[in-house]
Each structure stands twice: as structure tokens, then as C-alpha cells.
């Protein structure tokens, strides 16, 4: 998991290019959601809930002094798949890389257009929260 954010997002864009139909893309998102490593139950607390999502989303971050590791969960599987994408891109990266990450891949794969406004807002909140953690570790 040492590739750069850039490399990881390029992989994701290529992956999504393989599917033409949005039902297939959603199918892919759902399987990513099912594969998302489980969050430690102790982190599934209200303090870790992200505001602005219609489904519940928990996000936890750890920092080993070099890289940030994210774990997350949601009660909705599509949301979980979207989280899985974000975790795949940002987890294991340095705080600097996360803060400066270009996440335009979300638009490139057409995801934003296919999310309802509330879900799109939820995605924005999720990205904000991930960057917020990174920013906090950066200033440590």
C-alpha cells in the first residue's frame, strides 16, 4: 500500500471505466463495501459519527507518527462502498499527502452525478473529516 494517492486514484478511475452501466458500477461499489475491513467495535461510537449523512457513518483515524490509518463503517452498504474508496485512497498516507490530496477522481468516475444530493453532501463531509484528522496530525 505504498503507492501515491495519484496512483491509487488512477487505478480506481481505470476500474470504473470497465463498467458501462451504472448498475454495474454500483455493483462494484457494493462489493467494495462488503470487503471493507471491519472497524473496531469500540470506535463505533457517536463521537465518531459523521454529520450530514442520511445513513450512519463512523470514521476512526490512527497515526503512527508517519502515516494515518483510517477505519470506517456504515449501516448502508452503498455508503460503505464509497467509504471503502476513500479509505483505499487515503489510508496509509502521510498527513501532508492527505491534506493536499486531489480527489477529483470522484467527479471523474461520475460518482457525484449519480449520488443523491444528501449522499453527495455526506461524501463531502466524509472527505472533510478525513482531511481534518490529517491536518490535526500534521500540526503535531
Amino acid at each position: 500500500m505504498s503507492e501515491s494517492i495519484q496512483e491509487r486514484t488512477t487505478d480506481i478511475v481505470d476500474e470504473f471505466d470497465m463498467f458501462e452501466d451504472w448498475m454495474d458500477k454500483y455493483d462494484h461499489i457494493i462489493s467494495l463495501g462488503k470487503e471493507l475491513p471491519l472497524i473496531d467495535e469500540q470506535h463505533k461510537v457517536d463521537d465518531n459519527l459523521i454529520k450530514g449523512c442520511q445513513s450512519r457513518v463512523w470514521l476512526h483515524a490512527d497515526y503512527d507518527g508517519q502515516n494515518v490509518t483510517f477505519t470506517a463503517d456504515s449501516d448502508a452498504i452503498i455508503t460503505k462502498g464509497i467509504i471503502a474508496l476513500m479509505v483505499r485512497v487515503l489510508s496509509g498516507q502521510s498527513p501532508e499527502a492527505i491534506v493536499n490530496a486531489d480527489l477529483s477522481f470522484v467527479d471523474e468516475i461520475g460518482l457525484k452525478d449519480h449520488l443523491s444530493p444528501t449522499r453527495a453532501n455526506g461524501l463531502v463531509s466524509m472527505i472533510k473529516q478525513m482531511k481534518f484528522y490529517a491536518l490535526a496530525y500534521q500540526s503535531k
Binding site: S55, D75, A76, I77, I78, S116
Partner: peptide
Amino acid sequence: HPYDVGTL
């Protein structure tokens, strides 16, 4: 989750 069903 109702939201997943509605989205699809």
C-alpha cells in the same frame, strides 16, 4: 438499508 434500495 432503505437508502441503498432507494438509490438503486
